[in-house]
Amino acid sequence: MMAFIRFADSLSAWFGKSFAWLILLMTLGTSYEVFVRYVLGSPTPWALDLSFIMYGTLFMMGGAYTLSRDGHVRGDFLYRLWPARVQAAVDLVLYLIFFFPGVTALVFTGWKYAIRSWSYLEVSANSPAGIPIFQFKTVIVAAGLLLFVQGLAQVCRCLLCLRSGSWLTAEDDVEETETLLMRQHQVQGQTPVSTGEHRP
């Protein structure tokens, strides 16, 4: 079970981190568009399409990575007060009835959606540049598959926690500044904050 969790974590992280670099491409691509559009007066026909394809791919492919780091927002003001075993029991049930149906639909219905797009090699209707979007629609399936595998790992985490009474967290990775700083200062005293990731 441990091995599987580690495998899923690194699979999700590998994909998440690889696709994360799209942000750099996106920054440079959009900046290039700004330059040719406002300085040279000849905008590209592809910048708009490319920016949403990169944004959409980025966040979809990051879904599983974020899940493995417990980074999806939870309404956890009660949850965080519970003992780990209770957390694990509740999570386990909710993963089974809440998580897998939707993620399975991403894979299967997403497949039907994407395969149709492949059948006529669909391009974006946003510009005449003919930027392909069939591969972009396939991202739905890929994201679903990654989430499915990571979801199984999260279920394993719940089972392990039920047995041992404590959570198996993901291996060290980049952290938000506040998480890092708080962790460094935790030795100094009791803090009511879990190390869950938090957002802007």
Partner: peptide, 15 residues
């Protein structure tokens, strides 16, 4: 029409 305007040197967005 988008292809047409592109042919005329405009950059076209379809919205």
């Amino acid at each position: 029409a988008a292809d047409l305007m592109q042919q005329m040197g405009m950059s076209v967005a379809q919205l």
